[in-house]
Amino acid sequence: GPMASDKRPRTAFTAEQLQRLKAEFQTNRYLTEQRRQSLAQELGLNESQIKIWFQNKRAK
């Protein structure tokens, strides 16, 4: 629909990254900035991508 703007492409996470994020989520529903930074480095992701993933996951 018209609401779907092309400005922010959805990140396609790899299965491996998703597995890691899910495991982290089961341990911590809320990430500290430090955890998020190390996860971002570990997974080669953007911190904001991880932050948003957690927000979306909590919203469900």
Rank of each mutant, 00 (worst) to 15 (best):
G1P: 13
G1M: 07
G1C: 14
G1V: 07
G1F: 14
G1R: 09
G1Q: 08
G1E: 14
P2W: 03
P2H: 12
P2L: 08
P2I: 11
P2F: 05
P2S: 12
M3P: 14
M3A: 06
M3W: 02
M3H: 13
M3Y: 03
M3D: 13
M3L: 12
M3N: 12
M3R: 03
A4W: 08
A4I: 12
A4M: 15
A4R: 03
A4G: 14
A4N: 11
A4D: 09
S5I: 06
S5E: 12
S5W: 01
S5V: 08
S5F: 02
S5P: 10
D6E: 13
D6N: 10
D6P: 06
D6L: 03
D6I: 06
D6G: 10
D6K: 04
K7R: 14
K7P: 08
K7T: 15
K7Y: 06
K7M: 06
K7Q: 12
K7H: 12
K7F: 13
K7W: 06
R8D: 14
R8I: 10
R8C: 14
R8H: 08
R8G: 13
R8Y: 12
R8E: 10
R8N: 10
R8A: 09
R8S: 08
R8P: 15
P9M: 03
P9C: 12
P9W: 06
P9F: 04
P9V: 04
R10W: 15
R10E: 15
R10T: 15
R10V: 15
R10Q: 15
R10S: 15
T11Q: 14
T11P: 15
T11M: 08
T11W: 15
T11F: 14
T11R: 15
T11L: 13
A12S: 15
A12I: 08
A12K: 15
A12Y: 15
A12M: 07
A12V: 12
F13A: 02
F13V: 04
F13Y: 08
F13Q: 01
F13T: 02
F13R: 01
F13H: 03
T14P: 01
T14G: 03
T14F: 02
T14Y: 02
T14L: 03
T14C: 03
T14N: 07
T14H: 03
A15E: 09
A15T: 09
A15D: 09
A15F: 11
A15Q: 10
A15I: 11
E16I: 12
E16Y: 12
E16D: 10
E16T: 13
E16C: 07
E16P: 03
E16L: 14
E16H: 11
E16W: 12
Q17G: 02
Q17E: 02
Q17W: 01
Q17S: 03
Q17H: 04
Q17N: 03
Q17Y: 01
Q17F: 01
L18Q: 06
Q19V: 13
Q19T: 12
R20N: 02
R20M: 06
R20K: 09
R20Y: 05
R20T: 05
R20L: 05
R20D: 01
L21E: 00
L21N: 01
L21R: 00
L21C: 02
L21M: 05
L21G: 00
K22L: 11
K22R: 07
K22T: 10
K22V: 07
K22P: 00
K22W: 06
K22M: 10
A23R: 09
A23I: 08
A23L: 09
A23M: 09
A23N: 09
A23E: 12
A23F: 06
E24I: 05
E24G: 01
E24F: 02
E24P: 00
E24N: 01
E24H: 02
E24K: 01
E24A: 06
F25A: 02
F25D: 00
F25S: 02
F25P: 00
F25Y: 09
F25K: 02
F25G: 01
F25Q: 01
F25E: 01
Q26S: 11
Q26T: 07
Q26C: 11
Q26I: 13
Q26P: 01
Q26E: 12
Q26R: 12
Q26L: 11
Q26N: 10
Q26A: 13
Q26V: 06
T27G: 09
T27Y: 07
T27S: 14
T27R: 13
T27L: 13
N28P: 01
N28Q: 06
N28T: 09
N28L: 03
N28V: 03
R29L: 04
R29H: 08
Y30G: 04
Y30E: 07
Y30N: 08
Y30T: 11
Y30A: 04
Y30I: 09
L31T: 03
L31P: 14
L31G: 01
L31Y: 01
L31H: 02
L31W: 03
L31R: 01
T32Q: 05
T32W: 04
T32N: 13
T32K: 05
E33I: 12
E33Q: 11
E33P: 15
E33M: 11
E33R: 14
E33N: 11
E33W: 06
E33G: 12
E33Y: 11
Q34E: 10
Q34K: 09
R35G: 05
R35L: 09
R35S: 06
R35Y: 09
R35C: 04
R35P: 02
R36Q: 14
R36K: 14
R36N: 08
R36L: 14
R36A: 13
R36M: 11
R36T: 11
R36I: 06
R36W: 04
Q37T: 13
Q37L: 11
Q37G: 09
Q37S: 11
Q37V: 09
Q37A: 12
S38L: 14
S38C: 09
S38D: 11
S38W: 10
S38Q: 15
S38H: 08
L39W: 01
L39K: 00
L39M: 05
L39Q: 00
L39Y: 00
L39C: 01
L39E: 00
L39F: 03
L39R: 00
A40N: 01
A40C: 04
A40T: 02
A40I: 02
A40M: 03
Q41A: 10
Q41V: 12
Q41C: 09
Q41P: 01
Q41L: 14
E42Q: 07
E42V: 04
E42Y: 03
E42N: 03
E42M: 04
E42W: 03
E42I: 07
E42S: 05
E42K: 03
L43Q: 01
L43G: 00
L43H: 01
L43R: 00
L43F: 04
L43V: 05
G44D: 09
G44C: 06
G44N: 13
G44Q: 11
G44L: 05
G44S: 08
L45T: 05
L45H: 02
L45P: 00
L45K: 03
L45I: 06
L45A: 05
N46R: 08
N46A: 13
N46T: 14
N46P: 06
N46G: 09
N46I: 08
N46W: 06
N46C: 09
N46H: 08
E47V: 11
E47K: 04
E47W: 03
E47D: 07
E47M: 04
S48Q: 14
S48D: 07
S48H: 13
S48E: 12
S48Y: 13
S48C: 10
Q49N: 06
Q49S: 12
Q49A: 15
Q49L: 12
Q49F: 06
I50Y: 01
I50S: 01
I50E: 00
I50F: 01
I50C: 01
I50V: 07
I50T: 01
K51T: 09
K51N: 10
K51S: 07
K51R: 10
K51H: 14
K51W: 12
K51M: 05
K51E: 07
K51P: 01
K51D: 10
I52R: 15
I52M: 10
I52P: 01
I52T: 14
I52W: 14
W53Q: 00
W53D: 00
W53M: 01
W53P: 00
F54R: 00
F54N: 01
F54V: 02
F54Y: 04
Q55K: 15
Q55D: 07
Q55E: 09
N56Q: 11
N56K: 15
N56V: 08
N56D: 06
N56A: 08
K57V: 06
K57S: 08
K57Q: 13
K57W: 06
K57H: 07
K57D: 02
K57M: 13
R58D: 04
R58E: 05
R58I: 10
R58H: 05
R58N: 11
R58S: 06
A59I: 09
A59M: 10
A59T: 09
A59Q: 10
A59N: 13
K60T: 09
K60N: 07
K60C: 07
